[in-house]
């Protein structure tokens, strides 16, 4: 395989010494099978050990290595350098999050919002362990399977223009996960979750740009999930206004 050199323009930010972000160029030898993450690791191993970024599995499962490459949020382990257009590859940290250092961002806001939608089965009455598992048919699994593939890589938050302009938005992944549990036949927490997503920091800011679903590496469809949630939350709201008695049950 032919080797060639590609210039990587990498976002640098050292909070102890820098007043703002800068870019640093590195020349990296590239083969046809080099992914962006390989190039970053080459920089760290041989050119500049101070470069900081997150990664773990190298195979699109852990969701740690998300970055903006040429402005588009991607998992860097899944993007071949040979497929990128233009002479220079620009690597930025994911957009819409505070930058801790170089390419590392802080997710605390997402983590708080994820906890808010209670990403676990809610049962009114827990069955005893001796009763065994909560069983489902293949159709019942299929109802939420796509939305359950999220690996919390946060690319959708990086792509979302609404999340970029307001904190009052639950965001794509947390919404998709909320919808995933609402559609789960074993779960009994739909009303609770719909209440959470109907708050000021819920889903109402979403304008269905749809970019979250475009960038998702796992083919989750947060954009569609949010619209479905809006319909459900809106219907629930109308029910509570028109029939307060039956809704409070």
């Amino acid at each position: 395989m032919a080797e060639r050199e590609v210039v990587f323009r990498v976002h640098r930010y050292r909070p102890e010494s820098d007043r703002g972000p800068t870019y640093q160029d590195y020349r990296v030898p590239i083969r046809d099978d080099t992914v962006v993450l390989d190039a970053l690791n080459h920089i760290k191993d041989t050119l500049d050990p101070t470069l900081t970024f997150r990664w773990s599995c190298r195979m699109g499962i852990c969701g740690s290595c998300g970055m903006n490459v040429n402005g588009t949020p991607v998992l860097t382990c899944g993007v071949f350098v040979k497929d990128l257009r233009g002479g220079v590859v620009t690597v930025d940290p994911m957009a819409n999050f505070p930058v801790l250092k170089d390419l590392v961002v802080e997710f605390d806001d997402f983590m708080r919002k994820l906890q808010g939608v209670k990403p676990f089965l809610i049962r009114k009455e827990d069955a005893p362990l001796s009763a065994g598992e909560y069983r489902q048919t293949p159709e019942q699994v299929e109802a939420y399977r796509q939305q359950s593939m999220c690996i919390n890589c946060m690319l959708c938050y990086s792509a979302c223009p609404v999340y970029s302009r307001t904190d009052h938005f639950l965001g794509p992944a947390a919404s998709a996960i909320a919808y995933r549990y609402i559609k789960d036949s074993r779960d009994e927490g739909a009303d609770e979750r719909l209440g959470r997503i109907s708050t000021k920091t819920g889903i109402w800011e979403c304008t269905f740009v749809g970019e979250c679903s475009v960038v998702c590496p796992k083919d989750v469809d947060p954009a569609a999930a949010i619209q479905s949630l809006k319909v459900l939350a809106s219907m629930r709201h109308m029910r509570r206004i028109l029939m307060p008695k039956s809704a409070s049950r």
Binding site: Y13, P21, P98, V99, V209
Partner: peptide, 25 residues
Amino acid sequence: MLPWKRPAGWWLRNPRYFLFQMREV
């Protein structure tokens, strides 16, 4: 900390964002 804010005019950066704005208009 480097907070990130998307400047107004973002919808011109990406053809899909532009189409989105046309839809809204």
